[in-house]
Simulated assay, not measured.
Amino acid sequence: MHAKIASNATAMRRWLADAETVLANHSDRLNAINIFPVADGDTGTNLYHTVRAAALAAAGDPRTDLGELLGGAGQAAMEEAWGNSGTLFAVFLDAFAASLKGHTRLSGPLLATALHRAQIRAWSALSEPVSGTMLSVLEAAAEGAASTEASEAGADSNHALAAVLDAVVESALGAVVDTEAQLGVLTSARVVDAGGVGLLLVLAALRSAVLGEGLAEDTLEALHGFRVQDPHIHGDQPEALGVELMCTVTLSPLDAAGLRQRLDEIGDSVIMSPVGAFDDGSGVCRWRVHVHVADPDDALALIRSVGEPERVAFTELHAADPAAADRREADRLAEGGPRAS
């Protein structure tokens, strides 16, 4: 039995702060095993900076409604999302928050509902969702939550919440281990998926914030490729080619669907997700767009054919020298520009 459980807004702020800390501590190893969808070695960095945006937003938000608090954090994460993994985290958090509106305390049933909603949103945000990734880990976590919540007969109690949280982390961990056998590139490299491990760390931080129980370090050490002494596996992979393009654009759902289809034709790793609420009056909403393309000018031309993109950012997909990347990022921020991915 867990001695003390905290499930209010303060605990949710602590969740995001803890997630930021744990991702900062493990970003190097996440980068080292990042070989899917491209071996560019930045999953840990991208997740850390995106979660940090969410944590900062939540820290300065006094609201006690969990949905409003985490919704604001999710919107901040979406606006500042870095890369493929960061964008998927932002989609996850935004959808997770939607099920908690009107509630000031997390419960087992609410957690199961929120994870189910996040799972659906995350899978639908990608044009070509792939198993063996963050998506599989989120799906397993949602299924573990639903199964345990059902066994607790929907009880709204601390015991039930603890049971669901334990099941979420256990299921996510099992799914991370399974990723190695689900994707050929991971199987060949004998490594688990970097994004999946990142999401596991985020979910474990939620359990830690609520129950006060973190993820044992030796649990992570047992994951293939994740030991500190393991090599940077992405360095042995074929160099990624092309450019990652990210932006925000205001569109109707119909125009957004058309843009997604056209981006699918010229690129890969297409993610499109709404940012904020749909405007019933104008019939539009803002969309976060992420795509890997050979020629970013072609992609920008497609986007501009339906709307004016904002916060446009490019990043070359090859694994860059970390020191050089840090210097470029410092220069960009000094000029007041957006993050490159």
Score class of each variant (00 low, 15 high):
G281T: 12
A181G: 01
L111V: 00
A153V: 12
D178Q: 14
A39T: 04
D295M: 01
R29K: 15
H224P: 02
V284N: 12
L201D: 08
A194K: 13
G174Q: 10
I120V: 15
D236M: 09
H116L: 12
G60N: 12
D321I: 04
E68K: 11
E213S: 10
T64R: 14
G60P: 00
D279P: 04
T87Y: 03
L138Y: 07
Q75C: 01
G225E: 11
M246V: 15
P274F: 07
P109W: 02
L138S: 08
V164N: 08
A313N: 03
G44E: 05
A118F: 05
L300I: 07
E221N: 12
H224Q: 13
A57C: 04
L201G: 09
S305G: 07
L251D: 07
H224R: 15
L126N: 02
D255V: 01
R207S: 05
R29C: 09
T64S: 14
S269Q: 05
T43S: 14
Y48S: 09
V197L: 05
R286G: 06
M272D: 02
V306Y: 06
S99L: 03
A97V: 04
N84G: 03
S208T: 11
N46M: 05
L161R: 06
G214Q: 11
E265C: 00
L69F: 06
T315S: 14
G83E: 01
F278T: 00
A59Y: 02
L66P: 01
R260V: 09
V289A: 07
I33C: 06
L203I: 11
L263T: 04
T10P: 00
H103G: 03
T43K: 09
D236C: 02
A323S: 08
A98F: 01
V176H: 10
L223R: 09
V312K: 07
N31K: 02
